[in-house]
Each structure stands twice: as structure tokens, then as C-alpha cells.
Amino acid sequence: MRKTTAALLLALIASSGRAETIAERAAPCLACHGEKGQSETENIPSLGAQQAPYALIQLFMFREKLRTFEPMNEMAKALTDDDLRAFSDFIATLPKPSPPADAGDPARLQRARALVQQHHCDSCHNADFSGRDNVPRLADQREDYLARTMREYKDNSRHGYDGTMAEVLQPVTPEQIDDLAYFFARLR
């Protein structure tokens, strides 16, 4: 089932020779990542308003297996450099994700705000956490994906394009990572 699905998606995504628009070719991507920039799938990131240079780096890393997640490695393996650019530019045009309806636990948000200030997350990710260039948007990303990603950067099981996040997260505890993910997923 999984192999068939991957093959089907691959055929759709890699069909650069045909007349489909990039939006049509991206339809299988959005099945998991969310049609309006917002993922409803566990651990699968929202793509809406993601920075194009960051998205390009990630797609490149999936294609080159510098970042390993089998379904994405499969999707990206047949893509050309121009395909990667087209998909990353398209991703940046998707609407930005929205925060969940509940306002969140004020005490927890306050704790996270102090951490954000302490570690200057806004230094690279911008004051509104929309990211810039190769630095990703964090605002209203899925909480589970954020927490998992930070844990993987911290123990270096997910290799960054450079080592910045591995370095920045060294002094941050797992509990603090959970608070940070809670906060970034609820920005308004």
C-alpha cells in the first residue's frame, strides 16, 4: 500500500514534462501538508507562507538524503533543480497557518515567552516568527512537529543545513522545548 501510494504520488509530482501547473503538481503534497497551508496530519508540518529559500533547502536535503524521512525522500528523488525551485516558490505563496481556537494556558505561554526572550529566538526567526530567507517560519506551525523537530535538532538526529539549531538548543531542556512548541503553535 505504502509503496503504491509513493509511486502514485511520485508520478504526479515528477510530471514536469507535461502541461500541469505547479499547483496541480503540488496537489499530492497538500494531501498531507494541508490544502490551505495548514496541516491536519500528525507530525506533518504546515507549509503555508514558509520562506521559499528555507523550503528549497529542505527539498534539496530530502532529494539528496541529507534529511531522512522516507516518504519525502521518495517524493523528491526524481525532481530536477528547477522542480525544487518551483515547489519552494509555490509553498511560499500558500496562506499562512492559523493558531488553534483555544487561547492557550496563560501561565505556560508566559513561561515560553521568557524562554523566547532569553534565547533570542526572534534574532533570526524575526519578531513575528515569520522567518527570513533560510530561517524558517515558526508562527502557528503544528505543535507536535515543532517539538519533535527541536528534539531532533538537539540530539542531532535531524541534521541541520548548518549546525546553528544544534548549537542553540544545547542548553534548552526537553520540558522547555515543549513549552516553546506550545507557544509557537499559538501565535496571534
Binding site: 496537489a27 494541508g34 490544502e35 495548514q38 491536519e40 496530519t41 500528525e42 506533518i44 505561554l109
Partner: peptide, 28 residues
């Protein structure tokens, strides 16, 4: 994760995510 992925694939184009876009009444 892979199972969830396949599940989501089955829903290609089947629905949109309107609920998530609702704004809260009392922003913090």
C-alpha cells in the same frame, strides 16, 4: 507516521480545514 501519511493521501481534495481558521473571541 507513514500510516497517517497514507491515510491523509486517501483524502486528497476531500475537505478543507475551515475550523482551524476561526479567530478566538479573546486574544491574549
Amino acid at each position: 507516521r507513514s500510516r497517517n501519511l497514507s491515510l491523509a493521501v486517501a483524502f486528497i481534495g476531500a475537505f478543507t480545514f475551515g475550523a482551524a481558521a476561526e479567530q478566538p473571541a479573546n486574544p491574549p
